[in-house]
Design a protein around this nucleic acid. Structure first.
Lengths: 246, 246
DNA sequence: CAGATTTGCTGATCTACCTTAGCCGAACCG
DNA sequence: CGGTTCGGCTAAGGTAGATCAGCAAATCTG
């Protein structure tokens, strides 16, 4: 178990992410900080935080690590419907529903904070800027899902994968996880395939196509994009759906 | 212009839809009824209520007719990311975002009610059951988008179309628009193709396959499904994501 | 450390779905 | 009234991406 001081340093991603939507008041920042430190937990790779059919009763904030929201068909086909990245709030308000319609599992080791419903509602009530930022975060998650529908329905494999990579970079950037042209990229090709609706084989070939075109360097779990504009053009990427204000 | 008495009769779908999530108090019902009657509008087929890039500043309730949320790529490829059906609330809270990331257009003639942000916030504050029902409606919309990701990513054409038809039927039923085994089905095959990520040609063939299998009858804008369970089985359809409580 | 598993990668084959092109009947329109 | 558009439908041919099978390196595990 780490000290509170150490865990505290990991709250930054959440503050940075919410600040992308609204300037947070000092009061809001303090309330959030306090609430998050209350209960910090860890999970290893490949664990489910919550499963389809479970009763949702808490809200989570991701401090580090990557997760996926996913659904599985009876015959095993899996579709990742969203990545959950550091700084993301996870399931704002979902406790209003009586049952989860999807699962949330870790793709890497994860550190996260858990709030019970009363704590979370108290947090929302504590500060207007914070509440609005949380609402925006939730609405932006919605917008991401819409863009994914476009991605899977109307983009070909190369555009599709390029688009996903652009999105991940632009989501990691405001939380400070992009260093120059590179970011840690800790997930497997299988995960990428399940997120893009492609087979693992075809995803692998598409990555190689992107590499051959000089658009990406992806090796040893690090993604480097030297010409992001070129990648965005190849992806028909328009960042408006991320809804960052500043 | 129709009389208020006549328009009033069209509020039913909204009440019925929200009642699927929470039992509405009399007070909430009355407030909603009053707010909706305030400003009832009409639009013909093929009109956009709001476009990508517009500033969202109002909330809408659909009283009759079908609409689509959609996005268009630069080169014209279109993807419908959601159908908006009678009774649906349209863009709860979206005024918190500064810009629309998608468009909403009519697929049929539509009757709808428009509320400015202050009116809507007043409505939300007026009654707890109503507010919760509206939140649930919004969360359920989210869940539908997740299921669509699965649909486009992991289901083959026949399953995909079958799944969409099941969803539409199960969404129309609680608002009273399913009559026995049939419902009005006023949209074109092109619309269905854009919603499923298929080409119009292939969608047409898939419909014929469904007809040949005896799973659906679709003609003259009426959809009849004599054995809904069979269609659901073919679609790997699980209604849990619609989140109806009763 | 050896064995088992996972991950990235490749080749060959197959097929689901796309594209292009065009027909037909119904509705609409000047 | 004849032209035009729209929606449903069909045929032919091409291709993007799936499936199956297998290999090598890295990683995990006992």
């Amino acid at each position: 178990m780490n000290s509170a001081r150490h865990e505290g340093s990991q709250i930054q991603p959440v503050l940075r992410r919410l600040s992308a939507f609204r300037h947070l008041s000092e009061c809001g920042t303090a309330a959030l900080d306090k609430a998050i430190r209350e209960r910090v937990l860890r999970a290893g790779t490949g664990q489910d935080l919550i499963c389809e059919g479970d009763i949702p009763d808490r809200v989570r904030f991701i401090l580090s690590g990557w997760l996926a929201r996913y659904k599985t068909l009876e015959d095993g086909r899996r579709q990742i419907v969203n990545f959950v990245l550091p700084g993301d709030a996870c399931d704002t308000m979902i406790y209003l529903l009586s049952e989860m319609d999807h699962s949330i599992g870790t793709l890497t080791p994860v550190v996260y904070s858990e709030l019970e419903r009363p704590q979370f509602e108290q947090l929302m009530a504590s500060d207007k800027t914070l509440a609005e930022a949380l609402w925006c975060e939730s609405l932006a998650g919605n917008a991401i899902r819409r863009e994914w529908a476009v991605n899977m329905g109307r983009r070909v494999a190369l555009e599709r994968v390029a688009h996903l990579l652009c999105e991940i970079i632009e989501r990691l950037r405001p939380v400070g996880l992009v260093d120059g042209n590179s970011c840690a990229f800790p997930i497997t090709q299988m995960d990428l395939a399940d997120a893009t609706g492609l087979s693992a084989v075809h995803l692998n070939r598409t990555l190689q196509e992107l590499r051959a075109a000089g658009l990406i360097v992806l090796r040893e779990r690090v993604l480097t994009v030297n010409d992001l504009d070129a990648l965005k053009t190849a992806a028909l990427f328009n960042p408006n759906y991320l809804h960052y204000v500043h």
